[in-house]
C-alpha cells in the first residue's frame, strides 16, 4: 500500500485536503463577465452592421442590464478578496502576465462603456425618459455622434472580456483540469451563448428570436465540440490530466456536469431550438433560461472541480 500523508503543518482547510480558496464569488464573476461580454458583443456587432431596426432588443434593451451585471460581477470579485482594503492596488500597476490584472483593467474599460451604451439607449427604450440635468443631454449627444467608435471599442473589449473569463483559469498550470488552452474559447463561446439566450428573452420580434436562437444553436454546437476536445486533450495527456478528466468521467462531478451542464444547459435547449426552427410552437423562453442555467453551472463546476485536481508528487 502506498501512503502519502502530510504529517504536520498545513492543516489549513483552504488548501487541504484540496484547494478551497475560491467559492461562489469567482465563478459568479466569471459567469457575469461572460454574459455581459456576450450581450455587449451582439449589441456592438449589430450596431456596427447598422441593424438598429432589425435588432432593437439586442442593441438597445438587453445592454441596459449589463452595467448591473458588471457591477454585481465586480462586487463578487471584491467579496472574494481577502484583503479588501487594498483593492485599489489592482489599478496601480499593469501586469501583462496576470490574467487577474487584465480582467481588472478590461472591466475598468468595459464597465464605463456599458454605462454609456445603456445611457444613450435609455430614451429609445423608455421614450418618456428625461435626463435630470440638461448638460447630460449634451454628453449623450456627443456619444451618439461617436457611436461607431463606441461600438468598435465595445466589440473588442467584449471579446477580450469573454476570452479572459476562460484564460483566468487556464493560466493555472498548477491545476491540471484548468490548464488547457480550450478553456478560453469554451468560456468565450459559452459567454456568447448566454448572451444570445438573454437576447432571446428580450426579443420582441420573430426575426430577432429566430436569429438568436439560430446563433445560440451554432454556439452550442461549438461548445459541444470544444467539450469533446477538452476531454480528448486531457485523456491523451499525462496521468494527472487523465485524473482531472476522470473527475467528469466517473468521478464526483460526472452527474452534475453531464446532466446539468451538457444535457440541460446545452443539448435540451438545442433540441428545443431545432424544433422551434422546424416550426413547432415552443416558447423560446425555456431553452434560453436553460442555457443561462447551464452557463452559470459550467463556471461553478469547472472552478470547483479544478480546485480538486492537482499534480502528483
Amino acid at each position: 500500500m502506498r501512503e502519502e500523508i502530510i504529517t504536520s503543518g498545513r492543516m489549513n482547510d483552504k488548501i487541504d485536503p484540496f484547494l478551497n480558496i475560491w467559492h461562489w464569488e469567482i465563478p459568479l464573476y466569471l459567469f457575469l463577465g461572460g454574459l455581459a461580454a456576450g450581450i455587449l458583443f451582439f449589441a456592438a456587432f449589430y450596431s456596427i452592421r447598422g441593424k438598429e431596426k432589425e435588432f432593437p432588443s439586442a442593441i438597445e434593451k438587453a445592454p441596459l442590464i449589463v452595467p448591473a451585471l458588471l457591477i454585481i460581477g465586480l462586487i463578487s470579485l471584491f467579496l472574494d478578496l481577502n484583503h479588501k482594503l487594498y483593492f485599489w492596488r489592482l489599478y496601480t500597476t499593469i501586469r501583462l502576465e496576470s490574467p487577474m490584472s487584465w480582467g481588472a483593467w478590461v472591466l475598468m474599460i468595459i464597465t464605463p462603456l456599458s454605462f454609456i451604451w445603456a445611457a444613450i439607449h435609455l430614451k429609445k427604450v423608455y421614450p418618456n425618459f428625461k435626463w435630470p440635468f440638461p448638460w447630460l443631454d449634451i454628453v449623450e449627444e456627443f456619444f451618439i455622434k461617436y457611436k461607431k467608435v463606441l461600438a468598435w471599442s465595445m466589440l473588442v473589449s467584449a471579446l477580450i472580456l469573454g476570452m479572459y473569463t476562460g484564460i483566468l483559469l487556464s493560466a493555472f498550470n498548477a491545476r491540471p483540469l484548468w490548464n488547457t488552452s480550450i478553456l478560453g474559447p469554451l468560456f468565450l463561446v459559452s459567454g456568447l451563448s448566454t448572451g444570445a439566450a438573454t437576447n432571446i428573452l428580450f426579443a420582441k420580434t420573430h426575426l430577432e428570436k429566430k436569429t438568436f436562437s439560430t446563433i445560440d444553436l451554432a454556439l452550442i454546437g461549438i461548445e459541444l465540440f470544444l467539450i469533446v476536445h477538452l476531454f480528448m486533450g486531457l485523456l491523451a495527456s499525462t496521468q494527472v490530466q487523465i485524473e482531472a478528466a476522470n473527475l467528469f468521467l466517473g468521478g464526483p462531478y460526472t452527474a452534475v456536469f453531464w446532466v446539468l451542464v451538457v444535457l440541460i444547459g446545452m443539448i435540451i435547449p438545442a433540441v428545443i431550438e431545432i424544433l422551434e426552427l422546424w416550426k413547432f410552437k415552443i416558447p423560446l423562453l425555456i431553452p434560453a433560461i436553460m442555457v443561462l442555467f447551464g452557463g452559470v453551472l459550467l463556471r461553478f463546476i469547472i472552478t470547483f472541480a479544478g480546485q480538486t485536481s492537482r499534480w502528483l508528487y
Binding site: 480558496i21 470579485l77 472574494d80 478578496l81 481577502n82 484583503h83 479588501k84 490574467p99 491545476r175
Partner: peptide
C-alpha cells in the same frame, strides 16, 4: 502584505500549495 489584495490567484497557481 500591503500590496496583496488577497485574490487567491497565486494560491491557485502554486502546484505545491
Amino acid at each position: 502584505a500591503n500590496e496583496c489584495i488577497g485574490c487567491g490567484a497565486c494560491i491557485s497557481s502554486c502546484p505545491y500549495d
